[in-house]
Structures are given as structure tokens and as C-alpha cells.
Amino acid sequence: MAKNGARILLIYTGGTIGMVRDYGSGSLRAFDFNNLLQQIPELHQIDCRIDTVAFANPIDSSNMDLPHWQQLARLIGEHYHSYDGFVVLHGSDTMSYTASALSFMLENLAKPVILTGSQLPIGDLRTDAKENLITSIQLAALTEESRPLVREVCLYFEHKLFRGNRTTKINTEHFEAFDSPNYPALAESGVHLNLHREALWRSPGRGQLKVHLELDNRVGVFRLFPGMHPDWLRYQLAAPGLKGLVLETFGAGNAPSASWLLDSLADAVKGGLHVVNVTQCRGGAVLMGQYETSSGLLDIPLIDGRDITTEAALAKLMYLLGSGVAPKSFKTIFEAPIRGEMSEN
């Protein structure tokens, strides 16, 4: 594609956005991204060159796993100096997990990595795929004084660009499938493309891109619920090799004050397990100690997840464990935002 502007690498991992319906049979077949301009001529209006690469075996995003994250991070690292931005086409179900993981794996990122997808195949009558794809490429190609305007891992869906590690999927049927409950949108697409510069992440590091491929997935999620049997938590905490746990508590980080719960968690933390307290609520933050029912968790002490999402908390645990962070400093490092994934105290 002979263009003089930004060079964008489009990476297709799989998902609905990469499918087109055969109206003769009604079945879905793969979209031909090699002939992108011919099939989506609107892209001619963006001053950029688009190259494409696809997973050898595209996957449903429900099958997304550590090796796929490593493949994505490696692809971006290998092509980093040849392109001005990257657009990753991904199934929506696990997109927030992948966006969170990539944000930690790509240290000192100074270019846009934008994940997008769709609820309907790209050839359907009312598809959201074209708008999501076109605007993601347009956002990735934005520059100012020869530098990319967006310099972080993002997620674009239904007219909004979000910080990737602040997102969560909220709907399986609506086009507005994602939300960023604790951080504003980075950009909004309407009649005009409005970029909210004050919300953009600016990495404090000025070094070269570092691609971290070592992730430790010996982590888990445990959601508290009323009426829970004590043995259920004890069973989870005793899982062989478990190193980190995201504990989804009530409200602002509250939990039952029952001794079996607090004692089980305290014993696990003393034994070296890193337990992060996050809220089950869609928005808001953990405020341990604000209510009596969270003071026991503060005393253990659990890691304060504040307003981090469960997806980002899991990814951050995997990243820090894979980086070999010393146990004594683990809590302090986790509680500090390193990729804009949580708010400052």
C-alpha cells in the first residue's frame, strides 16, 4: 500500500471480526486481510501504509493462553522499529485480559498497540467490524511532530478508545461491549475524532522497548459469596503451587469477619501467597479499613488492589511473579501503578 504517512502493522489472531458470511450457504469463512484496501476502500482516506500478519492458526479468543500472549508480544517486539503503530484483531471474550497482559509485557512502549474486534462478522449488514477496524487504524496512525500521539496498549470498541488494562467486557449482545469503569475514555469517535490528551499514558521510562515474555500463571481468582462453605476457600488456598490470588470482595473491599476466613487468608499470606483484594463491583475502589468488615483484611495484610480490574490484577500478578520480584517488596511494587492500571493513592 503506497502511502507516505505512518506504517501500521495489522495482526490478526482470530475472532468474529476476521469472518465474513457466505450468503449462498450462510456459513462463515475467513476474511482476506491481504486485500484489505480492495475490500474496505474507505481505508484509502487514511494516510498510512498497512501491512498484515496473521496467526498461522487463528483462534477463538476463549482459547487465548500464555503462548499466544508471548507470540503477540514477540511479534510487536520484532517489528517495533519498522512500524509506527500496531492494531491487533482479537475476539472480544478475552480481549481485556490480553490488553492487560500486553501492557505489562511491553515496557517503555512508545507506540500505539490497539486491540479491537467486533460483535458481528465484517460482512454482516449491521456489522460493527468496519467502524472498529477503520477507526483503530486511524487512531494508531495519529502523529504529532513525527511521534505517535497514543503510546500505550489500548482497546477500541464502539466509538471509544480505552486504556487496555482498565477495561472489562460488560455485554455479550450490545455493540457497546466494553467499559472502563474507573478511568475515562482516551478518545471518542463521532462526527469528529476527539482525543483526550490529558488521559493518555506517558511512560516514565525513556529507554528502549523491553519485551517481557516470562509470565507465571500459578495464580487464581476467588470470589466471595454469602453462604460460602469454609472448606471451599481452604481447598482453593491449598492448591499445589499457587503463588498469587485475586480475591474479589464485597463493596469497598469488605469480607465476612468470620475467624475461619481471616485465619485461612492470614495463614496463606504467611506461607508466601500474594493475595490481592479487588472489589466485585463494576466500578469503584477497595478502601480497606473504611469499614469494620475490611479491617481484618488490612491487618493480615492483603495487597490493596484499589481500583484495578480483575483482568489487570491477574496479568500484573503473572508479570511480577514471572519477573522474580522479591517477596518482601512484592506488596509495595504491586500497589504502585506501573502501566496506568490503577490510580495513585
Rank of each mutant, 00 (worst) to 15 (best):
A238D: 15
H229I: 11
A140Y: 13
W201M: 11
S180C: 07
K331E: 13
P240L: 07
M1T: 11
P41Y: 01
D231I: 11
A313F: 12
A177M: 07
I137N: 01
N132C: 11
R234P: 07
I122G: 09
G85C: 05
M64V: 06
Y319P: 06
T309Q: 02
G296M: 03
V286R: 05
G15A: 01
A129D: 08
L302A: 06
I303T: 11
I308E: 02
F55I: 10
V87A: 00
E214M: 05
Q71C: 12
L9P: 01
T127S: 15
Q208Y: 02
L43N: 14
A56F: 10
L237G: 02
G117V: 12
V325R: 01
N165I: 09
G123W: 02
L273E: 00
A30M: 02
Q38V: 02
T332W: 06
T135P: 03
G324L: 08
V325C: 07
G123S: 12
V275P: 02
Q70V: 14
H159V: 02
A140M: 08
G26I: 14
W260L: 12
S25Y: 11
I11C: 04
R234H: 14
G340I: 00
G5Q: 09
V20M: 14
I17N: 10
E158V: 09
L287Q: 00
A6T: 11
F222E: 03
L195Y: 02
T310Y: 00
I8F: 04
N345M: 04
N277A: 14
L298T: 03
L139Q: 08
P67K: 03
Y23W: 15
L224I: 01
Q236A: 13
L66F: 00
L237N: 05
T310A: 01
H44E: 13
Q119H: 10
Y235V: 00
A336Q: 12
Y235N: 13
L9W: 06
P184K: 00
A101C: 14
G305M: 09
D124Q: 14
A187N: 12
Y319I: 04
P256M: 15
